[in-house]
Nucleic acid binder design. Sequence first.
DNA 1: AGGTTTGATAACCTATCGGTTAAATTAGAG
DNA 2: CTCTAATTTAACCGATAGGTTATCAAACCT
Lengths: 108, 108
Amino acid sequence: MQPDPLSATFAALADPTRRAILARLALGEAPVGELAQPFAMSGPAVTKHLKVLEGAGLISRGRIGQQRPAKLEAAGLKAVSDWLGEYRRFWESRFDDLDDYLQQIQGE
Amino acid sequence: MQPDPLSATFAALADPTRRAILARLALGEAPVGELAQPFAMSGPAVTKHLKVLEGAGLISRGRIGQQRPAKLEAAGLKAVSDWLGEYRRFWESRFDDLDDYLQQIQGE
DNA sequence: AGGTTTGATAACCTATCGGTTAAATTAGAG
DNA sequence: CTCTAATTTAACCGATAGGTTATCAAACCT
């Protein structure tokens, strides 16, 4: 995995399968079998995805009998949110709106 | 590059060099040479990073003489923010919600 | 026109990623 | 104790990522 945590987290999110797994886990814990079901993919592939997500601090694993349910963890997502916060002004600022406005009236 | 835009954006962010470039661009446009300066890396490597960032909608390129300045673009970051929004409740406690609410009514 | 500066392309190399199949592990059920 | 179910580990494979050096292209400056 990547040495720095933020890179690991972004890398984990850069895969639609893994984001779909997170979306499912947002509804609650689920065992591997259930997570694998929507995908045309072998079990081991799902296990790997879960390992990546776990390494990125996005999920944690539990144990219920022979099942190892995965659970969404806030830590990883919060790290992304914090990083993103530094840039929020770029899509929320009044100045950008003004800029857009000026470009718009110029085009007319 | 990845077919779906969000994957491309997350993949672009999953590299410390590219995030450092974005951090620099948050201070304003900059030509390639200046962006390359802090890194122990060849020019072509930086060009590649810029291409990845551009493909992810995180920057755009301009032209001033023989320079091709890069500029931070809100689009890509906003897409990440929107995606993240669906999960915000997972790391924001009731107290944080209150905090947001207070800030919101204070801004009015 | 010729040279310099700034950046992009091309071709290549190695490591990692995302997937596979086959075998091993772990836990519950007879 | 064996059988079965759930999941992981191991070994392998093709494609892509991130870097290199060498070469090309465009714009500016005499």
